[in-house]
Computed example of a mutant assay.
Amino acid sequence: MLPEAIARLRENENLEDAPTAMLKHLGELKRPYLTAIVKKLLSVIEKEYGIIDEIPRNFQSTKD
C-alpha cells in the first residue's frame, strides 16, 4: 500500500514528468517504509503543488 503522500501526489493532474516517474518508482519498491530523504523529497513536491503549506520542520535542512 502506498503512503498517503504518494497517493495524494499521484492524484494531482498537473504533476510534471519527473515527479510522476519518481512516484512510479517509489510505488514499485518492496520496502514497507520511506527513508528520510524520500520523505523530504515528497514534502518538497507536495509543497510545490500546493498539497501542503510548508515542509515539516523535522525535514528542513539546518545548514542555513
Rank of each mutant, 00 (worst) to 15 (best):
M1E: 05
M1H: 05
M1D: 07
L2Y: 13
L2D: 09
L2N: 11
L2E: 07
P3Y: 03
E4M: 05
E4D: 10
A5E: 08
A5Q: 05
A5M: 06
A5H: 05
A5V: 12
I6K: 03
I6T: 03
I6W: 04
A7R: 10
A7N: 13
R8Y: 10
R8A: 04
R8N: 09
R8G: 06
R10E: 08
R10Q: 11
R10S: 11
R10V: 08
E11P: 15
N12S: 11
N12E: 10
N12F: 06
N12P: 09
E13H: 14
E13W: 13
N14Q: 14
L15S: 02
L15G: 01
E16N: 10
E16K: 11
A18S: 09
P19Q: 04
T20P: 05
T20A: 09
A21V: 04
A21S: 11
A21M: 05
M22N: 06
M22F: 06
M22A: 12
L23W: 02
L23N: 02
K24L: 14
K24T: 11
K24R: 14
L26N: 00
L26H: 01
L26R: 00
L26F: 04
E28M: 09
E28S: 14
E28K: 13
E28G: 06
L29E: 11
L29N: 08
L29S: 07
K30W: 08
K30G: 06
K30C: 04
K30Q: 08
R31H: 03
P32R: 01
Y33P: 00
Y33H: 07
L34C: 01
T35F: 06
T35L: 05
T35S: 12
A36P: 03
A36F: 15
I37K: 15
I37Q: 15
I37E: 15
I37D: 15
V38K: 12
K39G: 05
K39D: 13
K39P: 02
K39L: 14
K39F: 10
K40M: 14
K40Y: 14
K40N: 14
L41R: 14
L41H: 11
L42M: 04
S43K: 06
V44T: 00
V44Y: 05
V44W: 09
V44N: 04
I45P: 00
I45E: 00
E46V: 03
K47D: 07
K47E: 08
K47V: 00
K47W: 10
E48Q: 13
Y49C: 04
Y49K: 09
G50K: 05
I52Y: 03
I52L: 10
I52H: 02
E54C: 11
P56E: 02
P56D: 00
R57Y: 15
N58F: 15
F59E: 11
F59L: 12
Q60F: 09
Q60M: 13
Q60R: 15
T62P: 07
K63L: 12
K63W: 13
